[in-house]
Design a protein around this nucleic acid. Structure first.
Lengths: 340, 340
DNA sequence: CCAGGTCTTGTAACCGGTATCAGATACCGG
DNA sequence: CCGGTATCTGATACCGGTTACAAGACCTGG
């Protein structure tokens, strides 16, 4: 009979009750070394009687691995990181690995928290600029597989990124086609390598068209409130033809701010975002969609390869993105509100 | 000099180099048992020379605890779960605990995955109806602290919930004030205890007003596409005055579907959601806001108490929610687009 | 000068598994 | 009937920590 739910039952209990040594129990359970049929059966019977399940800790200590992956991200607010993490968890789960998450929230203790995480996993994904390159290098040098996501590759470390430059060029060309001539770019800056690439794309397209790119991005956090604040600043500094924002939340905030001041969007100013979050559809925001979930999935698979011992030079994957044209960049005929 | 980055350095290496026993090293590092000043200093010197950091696995095995919490949720898509998880991670992090996540995705293997998670943590939060009560009870019976979130309390288990009934009554009364008389409720059903409570509230308010509540909710998953599908069904079955949806995504889908068929929302039909996601603001959706992040924080704290050995009867926290009136329930003067 | 107490430290037994090595048993052909 | 070889299995040394127990050094008061 099942004596208990299995809590506290150790391999020694099973061995004693089955009249075998712990080594034999281990062999039966792992299945990698042959055990005679009658013995195997006896052990399995006892295992199910006692509800025995090997301790994860004991096994991990003996095998020297955790069967767990980590992922570090700045924050989960906004759909972007949440989707990436979800894709990551799903893929990692299918590969039989648990997932430890760590959100840095820009805390000062972030490097120490990341190091701590590194001691609990067999490999980890670092999302965006959550910790410095030094910390990443230090951990990688220790032999822990790392995959960088949405972050320029540092040294010999694998990375997964969404395509930024080409999409930014397409987006900017579209705006130019609408007749827009003066541009502002908002948000991002060095804290986010992704946005730097986008701004480079915008710059390239403008120069190609013989237009003057903005000197530098208007500083702003990647949140709605920041967008409305920036809108007010733009009203004072002079409103450009087009405002290209680092992400959708920011763009939506800018639109709200401009409209509150009586400015017609897109009549007087075009505004664009990045990511294609759900609210972007309802606000008619022109934006660029990136395969958020897929980014997480790819990172998980890439990491798994390394954990399984795959060597070789660093790999860098770049996933394609899509320009999604809606109304906020200027009216089209007929107004296009679908998801494209 | 620092010989290495600390990888592979064990307590025995430190002990040997400092000329003491491993017990002494352990004592110095834990600080719970006095060690003479000169010895302590010598040990600490070696520790920093070698960059020694105790193994998480070794320590956990010896102490019989993981210093990690788990959280189980159905999915991360949509802001609701993401925000809850984020709040949870933040609070747990401050309490010095790592966070393991598990998304069930409605997989058949979910119970087994949850059991596996349970073997890796000191306690866990179960969100919504991800696994059956039996599994929850089984794990709780094993002595593992569990907190249920957004799920009716099963037996003697702690729980955190957002208030549902009173808000549903307020929402319904508001719709009745608008003059709506026939109602449909969409989505949820038994798979989500939260929605059952909401429907009970709707029912109560309708009965109080002498109106006939809908026999049962229109079945639908909690996603936009499901909403547009339901809208089509409603067109055939006859459109009610008001459609109360289980969450915002669903409501937005319904609105899209109805408008595509030429129905005026809110002119001909009122539609409401639940959660107050970002898109709800841009779509002018009347909804109920729940403190998603705070739910996660409370669950983490409650769990931590239990892990620290706090006994006593099961606790149940209920957090307040807010009715957020916008346009989708009927025109107000002046149209109210703010967040309220 | 000695019994008894305090401080400090080392020894070794855990925690719960895995894996190596060697011994026991059964089977084989010569 | 015997040595040699597979096949199974047990004993035990790990993995890297924590901690109970005991012992040695030193100090104190009677």
């Amino acid at each position: 009979m099942a004596v208990s739910t299995g809590e506290g039952v150790t391999i020694r209990d099973v061995a004693a009750r089955a009249g075998v040594s712990i080594a034999t129990v281990s062999r039966v359970l792992r299945g990698n070394i042959p055990v005679s049929e009658p013995t195997k059966e006896r052990v399995l019977t006892v295992v199910s009687e006692l509800g025995y399940r090997p301790s994860v800790l004991g096994r991990s200590l003996a095998e020297g691995r955790h069967a767990a992956n980590g992922i570090v991200f700045p924050d989960l607010s906004g759909p972007y990181y949440a989707e990436v993490v979800l894709g990551y968890e799903e893929a990692a789960g299918e590969l039989g690995r648990s997932v430890l998450i760590l959100s840095t929230h820009g805390r000062d203790a972030a490097p120490e928290m990341v190091r701590e995480l590194a001691r609990r996993v067999d490999g980890m994904v670092v999302l965006g600029r959550t910790v410095s390159d030094e910390v990443v290098q230090e951990i990688a040098a220790r032999g822990l597989p790392i995959v960088l996501l949405a972050r320029s590759a540092a040294g010999e470390v694998d990375s997964v990124n969404a395509e930024n430059v080409a999409s930014a060029i397409r987006l900017t060309e579209h705006l130019i086609d609408h007749g827009h001539r003066t541009f502002a770019v908002v948000g991002g800056a060095e804290s986010s390598p992704d946005t730097m690439e986008r701004w480079a794309g915008v710059r390239t397209a403008l120069l190609r068209a013989g237009l003057t790119p903005p000197a530098e991005p208007v500083p702003a956090g990647l949140r709605e409130e920041e967008g409305t604040r920036v809108a007010e600043d733009l009203l004072v500094a002079g409103v450009p033809d087009a405002v290209v924002c680092a992400n959708d939340e920011l763009a939506l905030g800018v639109i709200t701010g401009l409209r509150a001041a009586g400015i017609d969007v897109p009549g007087q100013v075009a505004v664009t975002g990045w990511d294609d979050v759900m609210a972007a559809r309802y606000a008619g925001l022109t934006t660029v969609r990136q395969p958020m979930r897929e980014l997480g999935v790819r990172a998980a698979r890439m990491l798994d390869l390394r954990i399984r011992g795959d060597a070789g030079p660093a790999r860098h994957e770049v996933l394609p993105t899509n320009l999604v044209v809606r109304n906020s960049c200027g009216r089209h005929e007929p107004p296009d509100l679908d998801r494209r």
